[in-house]
Computed example of a mutant assay.
Amino acid sequence: MYEIICAIILGILEGLTEFLPVSSTGHLILAGNLLGFEGDKATTFKIVIQLGAVMAVFMLYWKRYMDILKDLLTFNFSAKNKLNAIHMVIAMIPALIVYLIFKDDIKSHLFGPAPVLIGLIVGGILMIIAARAKRKVTAENTDDITYKQAFGIGLFQCLALWPGFSRSGSTISGGLLLGTSQKAAADFTFIIAVPVMLGATILDMYDSRELLNGDTLLLFLIGFITAFVVAMIAVVTFLNLIKRLRLEWFAFYRFALAAVFFIFVM
């Protein structure tokens, strides 16, 4: 029964934090530490509930994905100033390569409270730098993003492999530094979230396939559904919020969270 309560709490937390640059993974690791819900089962559980949040993003942008898929199947990449599959692929490649090379080291050394607190602080500093940087905006929306900018954002996405940095925080910061508007960076971040996180989830679930059995099915299903429902309710509000608030406000929250956990947990 206690594990089911943990599943609901963590599912709610995942749905609420996945779309903000505050590191949902970091929140889950810290919350799991507080709840005593740790170990291989907990790690696999966190992967499953992230998939629930990803499905919520897909529901929000499904028309855009269908357009991109249609252009891909018809090899239609000739339209200028239009986001297409090439943007998505080149934005995904850097993090995918780094993950495949270092995934064992990442899981062994970075999935703990101390590395998360460091990621929260350093990621927050990056966000403040990006928000206050003087740059010329060349991409007001996602269709203005160039292949070069997409690849650069993909390089920044590698930072998100460190729990606590936040995927959206890293990529939105990268977009701002590379000349996109915060709105364009946020939209692009969420659009590439589905294939990136879906791919990572499939790989992780394959590695943890021995834990996907009848004994864990109910627990994982409760967490997945909770994260999906909460994310569906929260996604529109949070997308509007992230496009309107300056990025450093989220950085200040990260610093406060890190301070609280350092004082009371570490």
Rank of each mutant, 00 (worst) to 15 (best):
A256I: 15
A256H: 07
A131S: 15
L73I: 10
D204I: 11
L20Q: 01
E140L: 13
L221Q: 00
K136E: 14
F228G: 00
I86V: 13
G11R: 08
Q149K: 08
K82R: 15
I128D: 06
I129C: 03
L69C: 11
G36W: 01
D104H: 15
L69Y: 03
E140W: 03
D105L: 14
T171L: 02
V48G: 11
A186F: 06
M205A: 15
V54Y: 06
A85N: 09
D104V: 14
G214P: 01
E38F: 09
V265G: 07
K80L: 14
G179W: 03
F261H: 09
G15L: 09
A150P: 07
E210F: 11
D144E: 12
L177H: 00
T216Y: 08
W249L: 11
V48H: 11
P94G: 03
I29K: 01
L117S: 04
Y99V: 12
T142V: 15
F188D: 12
L16N: 11
Y65E: 02
A251R: 06
L221M: 14
L100D: 05
M197L: 10
L203R: 04
V98L: 05
N81L: 01
I90A: 06
F190Y: 07
F262G: 11
F250A: 07
V265W: 14
P21L: 04
H87G: 03
F220D: 02
M92D: 01
F255V: 10
A133E: 01
A56E: 00
M232E: 11
L203F: 13
F58R: 11
Y253H: 08
R167T: 00
G174M: 05
L60V: 09
I5V: 13
L241I: 04
L60Q: 04
D40L: 13
A139Y: 04
A7W: 02
I128E: 06
V57P: 00
D143E: 05
L161E: 05
A259P: 11
S24N: 00
A258F: 10
I153W: 10
D105M: 15
I68K: 02
I97Y: 04
K134Y: 07
K107H: 14
G36F: 07
K103S: 13
A251P: 09
V48W: 11
I191V: 13
A7Y: 07
A42V: 03
V265I: 15
G179N: 06
L198C: 12
K63L: 05
R246V: 07
P94N: 09
A186M: 03
M232T: 13
D187V: 03
F19D: 10
A186W: 05
T44G: 02
V196E: 07
V235M: 14
Y253V: 08
I12N: 07
R244N: 14
G36V: 01
